[in-house]
Nucleic acid binder design. Sequence first.
DNA 1: ATTGTTTATGAAAACGATTGCACAAAGCAT
DNA 2: ATGCTTTGTGCAATCGTTTTCATAAACAAT
Lengths: 329, 329
Amino acid sequence: MITIKDVAKLAGVSASTVSRAISGNIPVEKETRDKVMQAVEELHYEPNALAKGLKEGKTNTIGLIIPNIGNHLFPPLVKGVEETARKSGYTVILCNTENNLEIEKTYLEKMQKRLVDGFIIATAREKSTHILDMEAEGVPVVLLIRHLGNAVDAVILDNYKGAYEAVSYLLARGRKKIAIINGEQELSLYRERFNGYQEALKKAGETVVPQLVLDDAFGEENGYAVMVGLLRSGQMPDAVFATTDLRAIGAIRAIKDFGYRVPEDIAVIGFDDFEFTKLLSPRLTTVSQPLYDMGKLAVEKLITIMDNKNKVTPIIDVMEPTLVLRDST
Amino acid sequence: MITIKDVAKLAGVSASTVSRAISGNIPVEKETRDKVMQAVEELHYEPNALAKGLKEGKTNTIGLIIPNIGNHLFPPLVKGVEETARKSGYTVILCNTENNLEIEKTYLEKMQKRLVDGFIIATAREKSTHILDMEAEGVPVVLLIRHLGNAVDAVILDNYKGAYEAVSYLLARGRKKIAIINGEQELSLYRERFNGYQEALKKAGETVVPQLVLDDAFGEENGYAVMVGLLRSGQMPDAVFATTDLRAIGAIRAIKDFGYRVPEDIAVIGFDDFEFTKLLSPRLTTVSQPLYDMGKLAVEKLITIMDNKNKVTPIIDVMEPTLVLRDST
DNA sequence: ATTGTTTATGAAAACGATTGCACAAAGCAT
DNA sequence: ATGCTTTGTGCAATCGTTTTCATAAACAAT
């Protein structure tokens, strides 16, 4: 491996001078600088990132913690993070936790001690004392797609608004009996989506009918199962608001299996706007999250935090969803 | 930050002893070890990864270079890599190159100097002297989904076989006029898929009719465009072999737009088995790549290479595709 | 000519870990 | 009891940087 000393020797100067010539922070005579640069070229010298990091107490690396890269939500998010980080001179270490708290903790602990300058965490747990601890210790952290009250900086979506607009749209188109297929109530994002649903109905003078509120576990399969249950029950809705595209797709499959048409008999709206959602037939109307931009913003916030030594109070940035109209409504 | 010296002081021993007690490689008296461990606990000491890496010349980190995490091919691959690496005590740094050679080179250069112990590269360029250079310099590298002749270790798919089996299946079901929607001929994987197509036809006594060979740029849009062109030309195929699921989906859209039925009038087979492919209607018959396993194998190979100081000749591992039968044939 | 500044450079001390070497204490054989 | 090995520990060097401090040279001001 070629070190700074090799360069120094070839250029006929000391290691310190090489360091100064390269960094440019401290003035070096033009002539010596040229000699150094030439030696650098000649030897293809690249400074050892480890030594540099050790000395400077900084690695220009950030850790990105996500539950599952296989979930279609995350690739755009990761892309936004990665791209923005790269453009600012940061490298990102991707950590996939499999939604396993132990793995998450291990990752955080392992990297905290100077492999990484800060974290972006996108694992959607509600209570996370270990993250609060990190924040308290002064480790730079930004949450993504989740928040821990106002205790930690975060970039989240206005879930309430997304749901409110989706349901309002259905109501405006004359739909009355609107079912909701929702997710785990422990997650605030699903509670908020439910609130949006509820408020939109209330505003229109409708009431929430309990039989049309379907709580679901996860994914396409369950969307299907739950929708089948509803159709069997005799309660025939004229629209479905699914809090996830996957649930919407499952619901559509069930509706078709029962011989009904989408959107003529039952309109369906999803949530997330997974990329492939526009390849389906009917193309899915859905609430779109600006995932790429959210990833981008999270990095920008994190960099600000890392640069600012003196801690300021956390800010929660709330991004706006967009209702994307397609053929399922 | 808590260092080994803090632990040493608290335990009343020297830093060296702490190091030895922790690593366990060198015997330490039971009693002192206990004292050390207790101090470690008490202070929540975690060794500084940078200092350790600098001293040992090893970081237990691998770099994973991919063109675009947004492409559905990559999440399963990344997952396979990440999970296997983690289980072996490695951390992975994800690098998204946007298919941009400059970004790729920058990443490789930047990380080569000891931030990373080895690389897995999944960017599908044919000529890559920079990678050959790395290999020559002794940097551990494994290629994934691509290969550079026999010069560099690689994990690839038997593209020929996948295509051969897909087309043979269509032929066995009585289809005769089989079109192929293919990708850039500069990429060997598409050349191989074409060869498989060609051979299957030949074996069945059919010949390749040039009008049915469609070369395409990329994605769903182009699959659609190219298929429209074919249907307009009056050449009516009874089956389509698309070398990518996205192309297949585009083709199906075109076929439907022309009022034909899939699979009754025209059967369609894709390639890749993107996860959402089974959510479409009709559910797509396709050639599945064992992406997760390929990522896994790549890591295993890389670790072997990194452990083995003495270089052995590169091995190209060829994985088997599987034909997944669904409703589009 | 003398002193005081400025400027460019090198030597050396960090950063936090590991490890070869030296040495003391303990164990064993004679 | 003496010498020889074994065992456990500390000291100091090392990894490749950056940066403080000191010094020498160049220059300006008296």
